[in-house]
Nucleic acid binder design. Structure first.
Ligand SMILES: [Mn+2]
Ligand SMILES: [Mn+2]
Ligand SMILES: [Mn+2]
Ligand SMILES: [Mn+2]
Lengths: 235, 235
DNA sequence: AATCGAGTTTAGTTTGGCTTAAATTTGGCT
DNA sequence: AGCCAAATTTAAGCCAAACTAAACTCGATT
């Protein structure tokens, strides 16, 4: 009985005890917040999802009962292995959707996050697979974030913060690590997106502006906060 | 004040007092059922949506309060003009999605309805417009159903039931009027889909089988119930 | 005219996901 | 050691959308 069910689960790849979009968005959010601090606090999760901390607290307890997150009261949440697999699937769909909306449907790169977010919990596996094929199994979304494989593994890459390199090191932009659509639109208008080659020519002190030169010879000046979002691969 | 709001509504084309997907599916369903009998009964609506009649009854009352349907107790529901516009928008999105899934993404024609149904209440106007452009402003979904325009008008066509024509009249299939995916798969495998040319060569009595000959010279024999779903344009 | 069954509505309850307001825990600071 | 502010959880309640069970309407039939 129990083992028959387990086999079925393994064959289907996802147990997925009827998770609705609310639960999926919680898991997705916890995963992304945990990437930074190792775990996700109730308040952070609540802020991200636009609910009150008390609402998030209640929901976290439910997710813990379902074995999707491990919750230490007053200490924050971590995904269980089961929860992590489901979160990665949602993130895969989100990023594939962004790539699909951008490359196949011609949306602007600052529009795709919002729309991918609405669709990520609605599409099914067939849709996911068709996008993946049509895009040639892409490794990254249009902003450069990594797309996990169907088996839940992240591609291994070597992205480093632009500002961690010595001045004048030539490098290729790999990721613009923000989801603020107004910043994305601005940076895109400057020609700053994954694939573009550049070097840092000056970093003004006291959190002053950062001056970049692209391989096309153009000079771009950015505030420190924006420059910190740029991840590159040195040449 | 009031008139400013009305202007904004007219400019945006849809007032849409925060309708969620439940309400949109009710309106969609009422529209399609009303096409047949002029109005939709509580029980029919409930069956279509997979809820109990009592549940549908309560929901219909709420839609009536919002001015979306006109409800005569014990007599069934009709859409108001406002409700009709919203229903047509959902139907437009459903059929555009079917065409998109079929022509752009390569799904089989018996798969697209289910998936379009899940997506139809999630996509936004930009997505709708992009599909429309990519598909060259199509008039019909892959099954041949008409796609309403953005302004809520149905294309005018001249589809007649295949079985209403005299024997041996040559005609082009325009619509297979069912949403049963198993029937669609079967008919598709016989080569029977919009665009194919054929004539009826025999109609057996007592609800017996219907024999068709395609322009490719093939003979197809169908039960009456399936043959009745075929709409054509005589040549 | 009275009755009956199908169709429909109402009453009462449940569930999920949230809210505000009131405890409670925690870690840092005097 | 004791206290405070911030973070967190609990308590109580709201709302949409469903359910089951019971009551009601309608029209058709006797
Ligand atoms: Mn998302
Ligand atoms: Mn992205
Ligand atoms: Mn639909
Ligand atoms: Mn169709």
């Amino acid at each position: 009985m129990g083992s028959a069910k387990k086999l079925a689960e393994r064959a289907h790849q996802e147990p997925d005890l009827n998770l609705n979009d609310t639960a999926l968005h919680y898991l997705d959010t916890i995963y992304r917040l945990s990437e930074r601090h190792g775990s996700a606090s109730t308040t952070e999760i609540a802020a991200q999802l636009g609910v009150t901390p008390s609402g998030a607290s209640i929901m976290l307890k439910r997710l813990a009962e379902r074995g999707l997150v491990q919750l230490t009261p007053y200490r924050g949440a971590v995904l269980t292995e089961h929860g992590r697999r489901i979160a990665l699937r949602t993130i895969r769909r989100h990023r594939l959707l962004e790539a699909f909306l951008y490359h196949v449907m011609g949306f602007a790169w600052h529009e795709v996050d919002e729309h991918a977010h609405a669709l990520e919990t609605v599409i099914n596996e067939r849709f996911e697979d068709r996008m993946d094929e049509m895009l040639g199994h892409p490794l990254r979304c249009p902003h450069g974030h990594l797309i996990p494989s169907k088996t839940g593994e992240m591609p291994v890459v070597n992205d480093v913060p632009l500002l961690s390199l010595p001045l004048h090191t030539r490098s290729v932009v790999r990721c613009i690590d923000t989801s603020r659509d107004d910043w994305l639109e601005y940076l895109g208008a400057q020609g700053l997106m994954p694939g573009c080659q550049l070097q840092v020519v000056e970093v003004a002190p006291y959190n002053g502006p950062v001056t970049l030169r692209t391989d096309a010879g153009e000079t771009i000046s950015l505030g420190r906060n924006m420059a910190e979002l740029i991840l590159v691969e040195p040449l």
